[in-house]
Design a protein around this nucleic acid. Sequence first.
DNA 1: CACAAGGCTTATGTATACACAGCTGCCAGC
DNA 2: GCTGGCAGCTGTGTATACATAAGCCTTGTG
Lengths: 213, 213
Amino acid sequence: MRASDKAYAALRDDIIEWRLAPGTVLAEVEQSERLGISRTPLREALSRLTAEGLTTTAGGRGVVVTDISLEDIDELFELRETLEGKAAALAAERGDAATFERLRNELCQAPALISGEDPARHDYYGLVGRLDAAIDAAIHNSYLAQAMRSLRVHLVRVRRLAADDAERLTAAAAEHAAIAEAIAAGNPRLAEAATTLHLHRSLSHVKATHTPQ
Amino acid sequence: MRASDKAYAALRDDIIEWRLAPGTVLAEVEQSERLGISRTPLREALSRLTAEGLTTTAGGRGVVVTDISLEDIDELFELRETLEGKAAALAAERGDAATFERLRNELCQAPALISGEDPARHDYYGLVGRLDAAIDAAIHNSYLAQAMRSLRVHLVRVRRLAADDAERLTAAAAEHAAIAEAIAAGNPRLAEAATTLHLHRSLSHVKATHTPQ
DNA sequence: CACAAGGCTTATGTATACACAGCTGCCAGC
DNA sequence: GCTGGCAGCTGTGTATACATAAGCCTTGTG
């Protein structure tokens, strides 16, 4: 693995997991020494982070970790609803019914995973990831898939703000199952509606658990 | 201006204007010598191009200019319709009516620019750019604006394939005026519908002028 | 005492040198 | 004659040295 890839992955994780707070300046020499690499690969890593929007160049004063506020969350979910709603509709039109039927069945059994301890919960996150991947593959649109991928980076960052309690996860699993069912049924409007519903509830939950802080 | 910015702009233009054909390998030494800079800033430029999707790394064989096919055009417009439709709707909700009313009036007088010679036609393109910028500003959503910006790069590339004859431009100006009018009227659904109509006609025109080739 | 100017420090931007990996072409052996 | 291996070369990946610009601190003057 290239040193620049390693640096990129490390910094990306540090930002997503909130180990690097928004506003932190990432000086080149400091970070290159911390990661044990030279400045050249580190600069490439910072370029990629900036292109993704996780950092911004602070005009000759290095790059700083981008801030993410409550207004950003609203904007983020506005775009997310647009993209994922369209993706769900396209998946319903073009996807393989059997694939999503299987995912629906798995999602209906997800509460068993959620109520369990952490390792099982990890399986649940993997299941949701497989649903996302199945939609990505079903839409047959690389540009839309790419837009959703770049959006998900910011979403993971937001998600860390909200506590994923078992109650919300169980409800989310049911909502995901509804999306998979609509796609399997080949009903675009229903798939889009189920996605809209899921995202609105997801946003409400994030804001409800975050604002009290 | 930094050397890496200059290299990025030069390569980006070369790709967009089809001076660098898809599939062309951009060797680092070759390009750095051509642009009169060192490899380091050139590499940063290539990183940014790859992040935008204009180039892809060919696994140790340098980066190659991304291909763009007819299927890509369909995918591109699918995403474009999703994003710009939503943007037009948001602009109708949140935008300043007077701004878009002014743009509509200018667009209604645009045929005079189009029928003229090239310098005046350039003014028309500037007018359309101002409409895009006004929508970007009106939506108050930086993530959506960013997604549209990254999409426009690919669109300009596609547009170079189609001959912009005066007839199509006149029709496009009327369609743009309809969008501006709907936004000024504060009617989100109408704005989205007008955008959908415009993009479908635009796509039809591109495909009609390109496929015969 | 306050403000401005100048120099120093520290950061990024750039260039170049070196290391390593992958490919290609040639040569030798079967 | 064909195939496999080796060597050389080309090109990327990395490190480091140097240039340059900007910001801050210090000092001098009003």
